Simulated assay, not measured.
Amino acid sequence: MECPDCKSTHIRKNGHRRGKQNHICVNCGRQFVSNPQIQPGYSDDTRIICLRMYVNGMGFRGIERVTGIHHTTIIRWVVAVGQQLPDAYDPEDIPSVGELDELQTFVGSKKTIWVWTAVNHFQAGILAWVVGDHSAETFEPLWQIVRLWHCFFYVTDGLKVYPLYIPDGDQIVNKTYMTRVEGENTRLRHYLARLHRKTLCYSKSIEMLKHSIRLLIHYLKFWDVPVPFRFIP
């Protein structure tokens, strides 16, 4: 037996790794097992199927039970894709009437988090969103996007934060006219298990929630999911 790096034959046993005898090279310190089995990575089709299951209401452990793929592997795929996707897409038509609303969810040990969404009153799809608490600091980045639309009106639910940014006379406080944004928020809850009102699925971190929302919004816009990086097992 020789070291795979320096080819030295001065080898000693060094415990076990995953049930196999581990060796160490006295010359260079490289550790290795004899006759290692190289596990092939999952195909692109398998990765895409798992991500589609995820954005169609299944949790990570549910996908694991169906496919046999460990849930942490699927989580890494979601993170890899979420890091590739943007937070917002340029609207096909600049909205003349915008709708703003907040969706409540939980992160970690039942910490209340809000997903703020902005949509075009006359077209489907979420155009911009942010995640955080119910404060003006959270809404500020969203408003920096929405204000560029120069809408004639902004329809809201009357949260006290909105008048701090929306010019006088441009805000309509009326839940009746918020069917578009409420419908989009309902779709988020329907398609993403961690946003269901009564569920055992929950977000352990805000970053994981953001990755999930990016992936879902992409899916609802294009009805497809990107392929995760191949180097992720």
Rank of each mutant, 00 (worst) to 15 (best):
N22L: 15
W129P: 09
L200N: 06
L85S: 05
G125P: 14
R147M: 04
C3N: 09
E207W: 05
G62T: 14
R65P: 15
Y191C: 07
R194V: 05
S34W: 06
V161F: 08
P91C: 10
S8R: 12
G15W: 00
N22Q: 13
R194A: 11
F106D: 01
Q104L: 09
A88Q: 08
G57A: 04
D168W: 13
M208T: 10
F231L: 08
K221V: 00
P95W: 02
I11F: 08
H70E: 11
P86A: 02
T179Y: 06
K111N: 09
D44L: 02
Y42H: 14
D45M: 15
V161M: 09
A128D: 05
T46F: 11
F153Y: 15
T199Q: 07
T117S: 09
V26E: 03
M178W: 03
L215T: 09
R17D: 08
N185V: 04
S96I: 10
K111I: 09
I113E: 09
R197L: 00
N174D: 11
C25G: 00
S205N: 01
L192P: 03
T105E: 00
I206K: 08
V81W: 00
A136H: 04
C6T: 01
W223D: 15
A124Q: 15
H218W: 13
T179M: 05
C3Y: 03
I63A: 11
H121M: 12
M1L: 10
E184V: 12
I24P: 03
V81Q: 01
C28N: 03
V79P: 10
L216Y: 09
W114F: 11
K221M: 02
G132V: 04
I74N: 07
V131N: 02
C28W: 06
V146W: 01
G68V: 15
Q144P: 13
F231I: 06
S212Q: 02
D93Y: 14
Q39E: 12
M58R: 11
A118H: 00
S109Y: 10
F152E: 04
G15D: 03
N35H: 13
L103I: 15
K198S: 10
F222P: 04
I217W: 02
L188D: 14
L195D: 05
D44R: 04
T156R: 10
C151E: 05
G68T: 13
G15K: 03
K160Y: 07
K198E: 07
A136D: 02
L209P: 00
V33E: 06
P226M: 14
E102C: 06
E182N: 07
T138A: 08
L159K: 10
V55Q: 04
H134R: 14
F139R: 05
C201D: 03
D93P: 03
Q123W: 14
F122R: 05
R230W: 09
D90N: 07
V146P: 02
P4A: 00
I145Q: 12
V131Q: 04
F106N: 01
Q104C: 13
G82C: 01
Y191N: 02
I232W: 00
E140P: 07
E140W: 11
N56W: 04
Y154K: 13
G183W: 01
R180V: 05
C6F: 11
T156W: 08
T138V: 12
V78H: 08
T105Y: 04
P95Y: 05
T156F: 08
P163A: 15
C151M: 10
R30Q: 15
L148N: 11
L148W: 04
T73S: 15
K13Q: 07
